[in-house]
Design a protein around this nucleic acid. Structure first.
Lengths: 214, 214
DNA sequence: GCGTAACCTTACGCGCCAGTAGGTATGCTG
DNA sequence: CAGCATACCTACTGGCGCGTAAGGTTACGC
């Protein structure tokens, strides 16, 4: 969207910071980190460049701030729906739905930033952090799930499974971004089926059904 | 007058190109696309910059060439072991093994390039191409697998499953790169189990066993 | 041997943009 | 209405590194 030529009211820092982040997210998403210019970001935020530097310090720090804000929002969206009292499969299902819904709703924001960050070294750390949190959550879920079945697995095993699941999620998220016509819940259901039953069960014709209908 | 310490042998184009690619891969992997300098690449290849431009045209094209060479090698490594006459599960298993083995063997090459490319726009296309090929192969495998079980699935379904699988693979590949101590076959086996049996089967204590022992 | 094509070099131009210097306006607090 | 802090601006610069012009040198065909 174009820069809003609004009356240049003096605004408190907290507000301007959010505006800058909004601008930065869309510019970074549009051109990528390196091709994004700070001038454009400042412009779009309806402010001049030195303000951005005053508040965020550097281009890299600004990017990290974007990543952090958007990532936190995603996490919150997922965690909000995963109530610990529900049965594990229901938790997983809800988490997946929330995840894909978020990705679909933030098509041009989160996904793109995320992809960016995985390559560029300075950001990989920040990313790995969030990813690790996510993996931990999922691993916990799988752990309880398996424990409920009376079996025990090594930590390593469960972590690897969680990693695979998170990766599958990311990959399908990419797919969702490019296929706006497919409802995100449908994708969530597909992954749920795949994960829950595995190819072995699937080919025997079994189908996992959500308690809450689509 | 300037005595050349190194006997700068004149080499045919094909040879030099490979040397340049070798140099480029390691420099790109080390610093990332943008922080890599053409001078350093030329240097490491034991050649001067204009040669690189003469042969590859631009920094971007050079990167694409790297991506292409490495990607092709990966594809070949996987396709080589997947003999069409084998039963589908064996094919899948072999493919996974080859994939993780390749990634582990090219720790500082392929994985890093791959991560880079997903963000930067100009390369996403090239990447998507290879990815699509991979997904297609996997989807074909899954399709035959399911058909063998006597059931039918929509193309969309199978493709999504393939996408999820490929994503899980990529994700675990990252993990493998950071965990050199874990043998790649172990990771392959884990994913195979996960995919093949699904969490549902796993928690009932089932285990898929490879025909060819680790 | 001699021309010519391919290989290879040194040395530089020059756009782009992150980041800054230095200064002005505004509003809050007493 | 001082006086102080904070919001905000215009206008620069420094240098990094991609890409190139112009010119040597070696191999190879004839």
């Amino acid at each position: 969207m174009p820069a809003l030529p609004l009356p240049q009211k003096r605004l408190p820092r907290a507000v301007r910071e959010q505006q800058m982040l909004d601008a930065a997210v869309s510019v970074f998403a549009a051109h990528g980190f390196h091709h994004a210019s700070m001038d454009e970001i400042a412009n779009r935020a309806g402010i001049s460049k030195p303000m951005v530097y005053a508040y965020f310090g550097s281009k890299e720090e600004l990017f990290v701030a974007c990543l952090h804000r958007e990532g936190t929002r995603l996490m919150e969206a997922v965690i909000r729906v995963v109530e610990p009292d529900l049965p594990p499969d229901e938790q997983l299902w809800r988490g997946l739905r929330a995840f894909f819904a978020f990705v679909a709703a933030h098509r041009e924001g989160w996904g793109v930033l995320y992809r960016q960050a995985r390559g560029q070294e300075p950001f990989a750390a920040e990313l790995a952090q969030m990813r690790a949190t996510m993996v931990e959550v999922v691993a916990g879920l799988l752990g309880r799930l398996i424990a409920a079945g009376g079996r025990r697995y090594r930590h390593h095993e469960v972590t690897a499974m969680a990693y695979a699941l998170v990766g599958a999620g990311e990959s399908l998220a990419d797919w969702v971004v490019d296929h706006a016509e497919v409802p995100s819940d449908e994708t969530a259901a597909r992954l749920m089926n795949f994960v829950w039953l595995g190819a072995g069960e699937l080919l025997r014709g079994a189908t996992w059904r959500p308690v809450t209908p689509l």
